[in-house]
Each structure stands twice: as structure tokens, then as C-alpha cells.
Design a protein around this nucleic acid. Structure first.
Ligand SMILES: [Zn+2]
Ligand SMILES: [Zn+2]
Ligand SMILES: [Zn+2]
Ligand SMILES: [Zn+2]
Lengths: 140, 140
DNA sequence: GAGGACTTGATACTGGGTCTCATTGTGTGC
DNA sequence: GCACACAATGAGACCCAGTATCAAGTCCTC
């Protein structure tokens, strides 16, 4: 539920205001990835009086805390995924939007090799995998 | 030079128009990554009469042909990188924008493992590495 | 409770990118 | 070379994500 998000925010010294609780609840009841526009639409539908800006601000906050991660979809849209705050990568179903998390499984070797060949110092990386989840694959 | 881009476009059955030649020249004289806005600024500076829309349209075309690839910068901006049309990844210098290309060096093993663990069929992936090129590292 | 800092939402604004459409330019067949 | 069908162009309007501003409201502490 949204309790996790709220607890984590509280521990980070962030004020737990009414709007923030409501937006956290919206996020908790989504599954898979969502865009800022999705949340704004949700909020409008439920006639919560929260403003657009507040939603963007909370998303920034959550991203800072690593509770949510930004994903760039293949079509260029920006989406968010609720997340554990440890390093990992996302597998996104292009049909239904379902998400799976995968921990590093050999990426470090790849970055080390790339660094050796190019002479670059690598500071960060982004890996996103796109495909079809088991459900969508069988539904074809 | 821009001849490569033009030749590739020609072979793909695309009309070689004046504006397209000029934009291709602009791209050829850039090094590293660039944004659509960069090209638009270049075009304005040189008083080429090309419209914004034409630049976006050519970028789409080039991306379709794999002659240019879209990169999502860490700050969320969308940039492009001139490219070979074979699969590979980019190493982007966060200080000066220099680009190095790296071929797959073990990524396939990572995707296979992720697929095995999650049950997803993986159709595509995006890997971007961010760091500092040798120049920027020593200049510090 | 009172106070002061933080948060909020309305609104205006920016900037990337798309759409439309009348005009122009290109490649082709002759 | 020339005409023609059709693709491409550019000007401008338009749309949408995201940001900035600021007066009014809210939270937490004391
Ligand atoms: Zn995650
Ligand atoms: Zn990683
Ligand atoms: Zn799916
Ligand atoms: Zn550099």
C-alpha cells in the first residue's frame, strides 16, 4: 500500500501533508509503470483538488529518495516505476506495462570492459529491457 | 562528411532535397551528441531557410534508417548521435558530450539471464553509459 | 495554542515536438 | 529537355510536459 511510501518519506524528514498522502495512494493503486499525466488524470477523476505542480513535485521527491525511478520508454515518453531504493534494472512489458525488477547480473563486467576499451571513466549507466511478460506472450 | 548520410538516404529511396542536404551537412560538422535545438540554432545562425519541422522530420527519417540514434541524457533531454546502423551502445561524456561506441560485450548474457529469471521475452534493450572521456578526466 | 518555515494550487510561461495546408521542389517517363 | 504526379517544405497554429511565481494555507515545534 501507500504506507510504505509515506513511512519512507517521513523518515527522510519530509512533511506528510494531505495532498502527498493522496498522491501516494494513487501511486500505490497503480501497477506497472505510469506517467505524470496518468496521475494527473487519476487525481482529476477522483476530484482530489491537487494541482499539477504538486504531483510533479512529489514525483521529484520520490525519485530523489529512490522510491520511484524514471524510465524512458522506447517512444520517448517519461514514465515512473515504484521501486526499491537499491540499484537494479527494469524489464518493461511493451504490451501491458507490467514491470519486473532484475538485479545486476553481469553488467559490471560489461562496463569495466567498455571502460578499458574506450579510456572513459564510467560514472553511471542506464539499462532498460523491453519485451513481453508471460501473460501477454501467451495471449499473443 | 555528410556524403555518407546522403548516400544512405538515397539508397533507402528517400528524396535528396536541398534542405535535407543542408541539414545533413550541419549534422556532419557536429561532433558528439546534439539535440534538435542545436541543429535549429545552427540553421538559424547560418541563415539557412529551413523550418523547424523539416529538421524534426529529417531526424525521424535518419533514426528510422539507423543512421542516427536517440539517446536520453541523464537530465531527461533527448539527444541524437550519428551512428553506424549496427547494434551497439554509447558511452557519453557528461562533461564535453564526446561519444564512444561500444559493441556488445556480454550484454546478451545479461538479457538471457534476466529473461530466464523473469519469464519475459526480451525484444529490445537500451544501455547507456555515462562518464568522462580521457580528456575531461585529466582536465578535471 | 502561536509562530515560522514549508507546502500548495492557480496561473502564467517555456520549450520540445506535432499538425495543417498552401506552395515549392523532385524524380520519372516521355 | 519537359510535363506531371506526388513528396517535401515552411509558416504558423497548436498541444503537451514541465517549470516558475506567489499569495494563501498547512504542518510541526515549542
Ligand atoms: Zn525498480
Ligand atoms: Zn546497473
Ligand atoms: Zn505484458
Ligand atoms: Zn569529455
Amino acid at each position: 500500500m501507500s504506507d510504505e511510501l509515506l513511512r519512507a518519506l517521513d523518515q527522510a524528514g519530509v512533511r506528510l501533508t494531505g495532498p502527498r498522502r493522496e498522491i501516494a495512494a494513487l501511486i500505490a493503486r497503480r501497477n506497472g509503470h505510469f506517467t505524470a499525466a496518468d496521475l494527473i488524470a487519476d487525481a482529476n477523476k477522483r476530484r482530489l483538488g491537487v494541482g499539477r505542480a504538486t504531483i510533479f513535485r512529489l514525483l521529484d521527491l520520490l525519485a530523489e529518495q529512490g522510491l520511484v525511478e524514471r524510465v524512458d520508454l522506447p517512444d520517448g515518453r517519461h514514465a515512473y516505476v515504484p521501486c526499491e531504493p537499491s540499484h537494479h534494472h527494469h524489464l518493461v512489458c511493451v504490451a501491458c506495462g507490467a514491470i519486473a525488477e532484475v538485479e545486476d547480473c553481469g553488467i559490471d563486467a560489461v562496463t569495466a570492459e567498455a571502460s578499458r576499451r574506450s579510456g572513459f571513466t564510467i560514472e553511471s549507466h542506464r539499462l532498460e529491457l523491453f519485451g513481453r511478460c508471460p501473460n501477454c506472450r501467451s495471449a499473443n
